[in-house]
Design a protein around this nucleic acid. Structure first.
Lengths: 361, 361
DNA sequence: CCAAAACATGAATCGCAGG
DNA sequence: TCCTGCGATTCATGTTTTG
């Protein structure tokens, strides 16, 4: 397959992440989710990002060299991600205190624009056995747009719905990946040391992508991103170097059935709903010309003209313009500001529009 | 006073942080708490949905030319902190996604050894008014030892006691500094835009210092660190450049009486009610997207969408809203109304939620 | 005087489509 | 690419005003 001409959609490619990304065309994916290696100083031994062992020289220059090597690796894969990302695309990276600060600084240097840092609070973290620190009970995700001016996608209403109709916060409480979801080898041992829970990817993809969007995971591991993307009817491009992980991921993805269309959908943002000019309500007699509209407190009143403008003394304009003028406010959503009387009660224009929308479905 | 020979204990010094720290002798303080400028990079004004203006941080001290200038500043003050810190001392820095990644990377480069990153979860954050991002509901603290081999202080038992005899986690839920604690000027306006709550410093100092230890705050503001240090019978060295802040801090510290050292002054932790949105059951695969839910008599059916809403023909909404709509009832408890099939029998969502609760206990 | 409602505010990197 | 105009958007908490 010629990757420079055809995207390897819904595939899990085995190989080096940076090399393979270099073969992809620029501005081709909507979203990147990356869970990069961070095996810097976790064990007694030091490992480089490519998993090779560092001679145990415990001197200052060695520590510096080690950070420098990690930074170089980070800069390389983030550069490729940015090249491959569409102008309005976003990138997610997950990490912990060993590596996330370096990643965050480098992605800022590369021109990414951070939108949020998100805290995955683990409901069941591993305790700190030696009692020398706080229980390390979270990991950090960075969500960033390709650039400061990106018109990135954020499914605000879907996130709000997911959280009982309150704005979704930057701290997410989710359990670790355990039980049946955890992929194990023939001996019953976990195959991957840091397999991420599918619930985490569910929220990530639902927040920042639409169905059929293309999601790239350069460090795919056992294929959590690919599996969730498939279930939510997103396309994926997954890269993983370790053959055993690739094999597990292939089997895993094959077992996933995409949710039916309704299931993969989410609440559309208001802006995505069909636009209905106020004039339509006038034309269709829902708010006939000559109707009096007022604010909620009935402090100001205006008359509906046949062309859908409002008239109030010498003032005339759209529902928004007149709303802002009578309030002396810089702007106004006329749909929610103005009301008409129905059965003795005041009903907002927005309510009338909503009933018109469901009637036309 | 000759700072090179005598420590300015329990004083709030007015002046440039880096210059004054340079005059202090090396290895002289036990702990540093630093709340540096965040380099917020705001542009334009922001209005709430009610058109009121958000009072944003626009002080001179938070403006930097670019990332390079901010990094240089950061490297300079962190270098002095490290020089002044005792071998076994620790440093705390607080920041947000605008600056914390740069700070974390630089302090690693300087040889600090990160012990934890700690998340201050705000119980009452400002919402995201435009609905373009997740509510930015937390700030990040980095806790680091002077070096990898530091035998740093951690009051494990005190932290455990503060947390109902469970290990203290790396995520702390605390309210913002408001009400009587917030220092105001003669006009009743907040004096400092970013005054930190005393409860935060209480936990920081109780975790990582002993009575009579010396705590340095290079960006003291209105003296929160100094006030809490005094109440907990720690010594402090505070540096602040702005005369009005220094004046406020001096008066504030004077009013503090050291508490008896019996530990009775522990601030209690906030216990959270276990709120489980229906969306959690969807994310975690307990009720996967696409599942069909029905009422007990199977008279109406709906499909579960990925964001936790239910879809039924043209209707879409939360489990409660859709439940009331299909019944034509004013309200409905969706948890008990809707059921899914499990082993051929109908089980209410409420039952599934209950099993989820016990699993997480 | 009390209860209820209205108001105020917090480290904020806070539009978008169409012409 | 710039310009214009539509019209989307808030939670927890403390304080003040109103009935």
């Amino acid at each position: 397959m010629d990757l420079t001409r055809e995207l390897p959609l819904d595939q899990i490619m085995r190989g080096d992440s940076i090399e393979l990304m270099r073969m992809l065309p620029p501005a081709s994916v909507h979203c990147v989710f990356a869970d990069p290696p961070y095996n810097l100083q976790l064990r007694g031994e030091l490992r480089r990002p490519d998993d090779s062992l560092v001679d145990a020289v415990d001197e200052d220059w060695d520590r510096f060299a080690d950070f420098a090597a990690y930074d170089e690796f980070t800069r390389a894969w983030l550069t490729e991600c940015r090249r491959v990302l569409r102008k309005d695309g976003t990138l997610w990276v997950i990490g912990a205190y060993h590596n996330i600060f370096r990643i965050g600084a480098i992605l800022q240097d590369l021109g990414f624009w951070i939108l949020n840092d998100v805290i995955w609070r683990k409901s069941n973290p591993m305790p700190n056995f030696r009692g020398r620190r706080f229980t390390n009970a979270h990991e950090t995700l960075i969500w960033a747009a390709r650039g400061r001016d990106s018109r990135y996608k954020f499914n605000y209403q879907a996130m709000k719905a997911l959280n009982d109709d309150l704005q979704m916060r930057s701290d997410w409480l989710l359990p670790l990946c355990t039980g049946a979801e955890r992929i194990r080898n023939a001996h019953g041992l976990k195959l991957h040391p840091t397999q991420k829970p599918e619930a985490l990817l569910h929220r990530v993809l639902l927040a920042s992508t639409a169905p059929d969007d293309i999601v790239l995971d350069p460090f795919a591991g056992t294929g959590t991103t690919a599996a969730v993307a498939r279930r939510l009817s997103r396309r994926y491009i997954a890269i993983e170097r370790h053959p055993a992980y690739v094999e597990a991921a292939l089997g895993r993805v094959r077992r996933v059935r995409p949710a039916p269309l309704d299931g993969a959908s989410n609440t559309p943002t208001r802006r995505e709903a069909a636009r209905i000019p106020f004039g339509n309500l006038v034309e269709q007699g829902i708010v006939p010309p000559g109707t009096t509209v007022t604010d909620r407190q009935r402090r100001v009143a205006a008359t509906v003209a046949a062309d859908g403008t409002l008239v109030c003394g010498p003032l005339r304009g759209s529902i928004h313009k007149l709303g802002s003028e009578v309030q002396n406010a810089p702007s106004c959503n006329g749909w929610t500001f103005w009301h008409v009387e129905r059965d003795g009660a005041l009903v907002s224009l927005d309510t009338l529009r909503a009933s018109m929308r469901t009637a036309s479905d």
